[in-house]
Computed example of a mutant assay.
Amino acid sequence: MEWISSLEDDCRQVGVEYIYMIFDQAAVDFSIIPILNGFPIEWHSLWQGLPEESSVRQAPLLIRFELNNRSQRLWLDDLCGEVATKSAVLMFCSLWPTPTLAGWLQKCTDGRHEGRPGLLRFYDPRLFPLLAGGLLNDEQRQQLHRPVLFWSWLDRDGAPQRLVGDGSPPVCGEDVKSIDLSDQQLEYLMCVCDANILLAQQPLAIPSFISAETLFQICYRGMQEATDKGLIMDDERDAWVCGKISEYITEKLSC
């Protein structure tokens, strides 16, 4: 797979012969744990230590693929090709020891609101760029990027995307916190759901020159604006966003 081959080259440029994947089993209709257990491969559940830890067959899994291991490398290509349209895979490069890395990312998955526990699905490639791009505050983004040299995912059009992290070495005894979301952050996360629901209903005829990723971004920003304006009824919010889509289409057609 061209995407993975490109990431393999990037890893080797920094002297790394392995790559990490977070695989979201909840995004597909099967568990990959039986296959993982057939490999001499290192993996950890990111729900370990959380109330959901017993549901390991639905959990996001941190997997370390050795790029020099032919069987692992071939399976990596096959797996990514099979789930390319499922939004199940977030790839990244890190120099951290895998157990330390797993513990850190488990804390990032432990999302909270006003101290109440929940799951922060940062590993969803549809959600990750929103969180890393501004939905999280500076401290929370720094925590997410801390162990990672670079991230990569496929967007809604199947195009590879890349984001640089921090990747500085771990510090003995370094504290990592659960990510506690503010009211506004939670409201903006709900805008993602609202945008997806609106898109599923296909309220407008969308010209082919508007990509799936662009359309989602228009809808998401529109839902944020609707929230900021205090529009709470579904029909009001949908009408506002449809207006934004129409404005975008008109602007592009007039160019």
Score class of each variant (00 low, 15 high):
residue 180 D to T: 06
residue 171 V to Q: 13
residue 173 G to L: 13
residue 175 D to C: 00
residue 178 S to G: 09
residue 179 I to M: 11
residue 177 K to D: 10
residue 179 I to V: 15
residue 192 V to H: 09
residue 186 L to V: 15
residue 187 E to G: 01
residue 178 S to K: 03
residue 177 K to M: 07
residue 170 P to Y: 02
residue 192 V to E: 04
residue 185 Q to K: 10
residue 171 V to C: 10
residue 184 Q to L: 09
residue 192 V to F: 14
residue 171 V to G: 02
residue 187 E to K: 05
residue 198 L to T: 01
residue 193 C to D: 08
residue 170 P to K: 03
residue 191 C to E: 00
residue 183 D to A: 12
residue 197 I to V: 10
residue 182 S to F: 07
residue 197 I to F: 07
residue 198 L to P: 00
residue 194 D to T: 13
residue 185 Q to N: 12
residue 200 A to M: 14
residue 176 V to H: 06
residue 187 E to A: 08
residue 189 L to F: 11
residue 170 P to I: 04
residue 181 L to F: 04
residue 173 G to K: 11
residue 185 Q to S: 10
residue 171 V to D: 06
residue 182 S to M: 03
residue 189 L to V: 05
residue 189 L to I: 12
residue 187 E to C: 02
residue 181 L to T: 02
residue 179 I to G: 07
residue 175 D to F: 05
residue 172 C to M: 14
residue 172 C to H: 13
residue 180 D to A: 07
residue 198 L to Y: 00
residue 190 M to I: 12
residue 193 C to L: 11
residue 191 C to L: 11
residue 199 L to R: 15
residue 182 S to W: 02
residue 170 P to F: 00
residue 181 L to Y: 03
residue 181 L to R: 10
residue 191 C to Y: 01
residue 190 M to S: 15
residue 199 L to K: 10
residue 185 Q to D: 03
residue 184 Q to K: 08
residue 185 Q to H: 08
residue 173 G to S: 12
residue 170 P to C: 04
residue 172 C to E: 15
residue 198 L to A: 06
residue 181 L to V: 05
residue 183 D to S: 12
residue 180 D to E: 12
residue 171 V to T: 13
residue 175 D to N: 01
residue 199 L to C: 09
residue 191 C to K: 02
residue 197 I to Q: 10
residue 170 P to T: 01
residue 200 A to V: 04
residue 201 Q to S: 06
residue 182 S to E: 02
residue 199 L to V: 09
residue 191 C to F: 09
residue 179 I to F: 06
residue 175 D to W: 05
residue 184 Q to M: 03
residue 201 Q to N: 00
residue 198 L to M: 08
residue 188 Y to P: 02
residue 193 C to V: 13
residue 182 S to C: 08
residue 188 Y to T: 00
residue 199 L to P: 10
residue 196 N to C: 02
residue 194 D to K: 14
residue 201 Q to K: 04
residue 173 G to I: 04
residue 184 Q to I: 06
residue 194 D to R: 13
residue 186 L to Q: 15
residue 180 D to F: 07
residue 170 P to H: 04
residue 176 V to T: 12
residue 176 V to R: 08
residue 180 D to I: 06
residue 172 C to L: 14
residue 170 P to G: 02
residue 184 Q to V: 04
residue 180 D to C: 07
residue 200 A to Y: 10
residue 194 D to E: 15
residue 173 G to E: 12
residue 195 A to M: 09
residue 195 A to H: 05
residue 178 S to T: 02
residue 188 Y to Q: 07
residue 173 G to Y: 08
residue 201 Q to C: 04
residue 193 C to T: 11
residue 179 I to T: 14
residue 188 Y to E: 14
residue 183 D to F: 05
residue 181 L to Q: 07
residue 174 E to P: 07
residue 193 C to Q: 10
residue 171 V to P: 03
residue 186 L to K: 14
residue 187 E to W: 00
residue 194 D to A: 15
residue 184 Q to G: 00
residue 198 L to I: 01
residue 185 Q to E: 13
residue 184 Q to T: 12
residue 177 K to H: 11
residue 180 D to N: 15
residue 200 A to K: 14
residue 199 L to G: 11
